[in-house]
């Protein structure tokens, strides 16, 4: 029965115009960035690396260059030397996929927010909630099917973006780079890793923020039954969460705010000290459960009077 409910929700999503607009935009943006992004696989990667080392060495020897630029140049040199020494070929598709990751995730988040905002609120605004809730199905099952369906649709869009990037990028720059090895900084030394693994891991970790915001959107949509409010607050959280956190750094309770933990889990960098993966997971898990609990309690108790 639960799968039938999710199926129902998926059908409703697939018939909404906004769904098709979002998908179309994603396809257009991925293709534009692929074919007009100026990506080109070099004929001889090794020679380019040598050239790069020379150029960066020149920067190090200049007098007027600031410390940051020098540090970056130093890193580049170390990386290039590591690649040469281990005979790792550089691929442009790596740069291409890394650049595209943010865009796909942004589209996924935006799409998910719109679906989550609509899924409960629009049933109320169109009055269809009445015929939905007089079926012999527990209200919480209906609510959860909506939530799962929103996540499912988002995952579908993300998968579409990823596959499209891989195929379009592969056609333009060659497919062999996707599964080839590349060099990754681990602590202060370089290690060899399969590119697809590194890329996939960073992609999944970057999804924590959209997942969190979509859950938040769903709660707002359920509590206030307004999709506009849900979209507005969620976009503010998505874009402003990290900025707002910066202003709270002087307080000790900042470590209980959510965005600092998502940043930490995604990048292993943090503005405060003493972060651990388990603590961050617990804090975020608590927020997640709180959002769902609030949504469930209000939906369960709501008197439908429209």
């Amino acid at each position: 029965m639960f799968f039938k409910l999710i199926h129902n929700e998926n059908i409703k999503t697939s018939f909404r115009l906004s769904t098709w607009i979002m998908m179309g935009l994603l396809v257009v943006f991925v293709l534009l960035s692929t074919f007009f992004g100026g990506y080109k696989q070099p004929a001889d990667g090794q020679a380019d690396l040598q050239k790069g080392i020379k150029k960066n060495t020149a920067i190090l020897n200049e007098k007027d260059v600031d410390e940051d630029t020098k540090a970056t140049a130093q890193k580049e040199i170390a990386k290039s030397e590591y690649l040469l020494a281990n005979n790792i070929k550089p691929y442009t598709i790596h740069t291409y996929l890394n650049d595209g990751q943010g865009m796909i995730i942004f589209f996924g988040a935006f799409f998910g927010i719109i679906i989550a905002a609509n899924s409960v609120a629009s049933e109320f605004s169109t009055g269809t909630i009445k015929l939905l809730l007089i079926r012999p199905i527990h209200r919480l099952k209906i609510l959860l099917s909506k939530y799962v369906s929103a996540l499912f649709s988002t995952a579908f869009l993300l998968l579409l973006g990823v596959l499209l990037s891989l195929i379009a990028g592969g056609l333009l720059l060659g497919f062999e780079g996707i599964t080839a090895s590349h060099a990754v900084m681990q602590g202060d030394h370089m290690v060899k890793e399969t590119f697809l693994y590194t890329w996939g891991k960073s992609f999944l970790l970057s999804l924590i923020l959209p997942f969190f915001v979509i859950t938040f959107t769903f709660m707002i949509s359920t509590v206030f039954r307004s999709n506009g409010l849900a979209i507005g607050l969620s976009m503010a959280a998505y874009f402003g969460g990290n900025i707002a956190t910066v202003f709270l750094l002087k307080y000790t309770w900042v470590k209980y705010t959510p965005f600092i933990h998502m940043e930490y889990l995604a990048s292993e960098e943090s503005l405060i000290k003493g972060m651990t993966t388990s603590f961050s997971s617990i804090v975020l898990g608590a927020y997640f459960l709180l959002f769902l609990a609030i949504a469930m309690i209000t939906f369960k108790k709501r008197d439908v009077a429209i």
């Binding site: 039938k4 059908i11 018939f15 169109t126 009055g127 009445k130 015929l131 007089i134 199905i137």
Partner: peptide, 26 residues
């Protein structure tokens, strides 16, 4: 079986698709 106030259905779906929605639930 009930209609409460207006028979509000999903306008972007066909009549049949609406009935299919409810049919899946019962």
């Amino acid at each position: 079986g009930a209609i409460v106030e207006n028979p509000d259905m999903y306008k972007f779906l066909s009549g049949y698709q609406n009935l299919k929605q409810y049919a899946r639930m019962v």
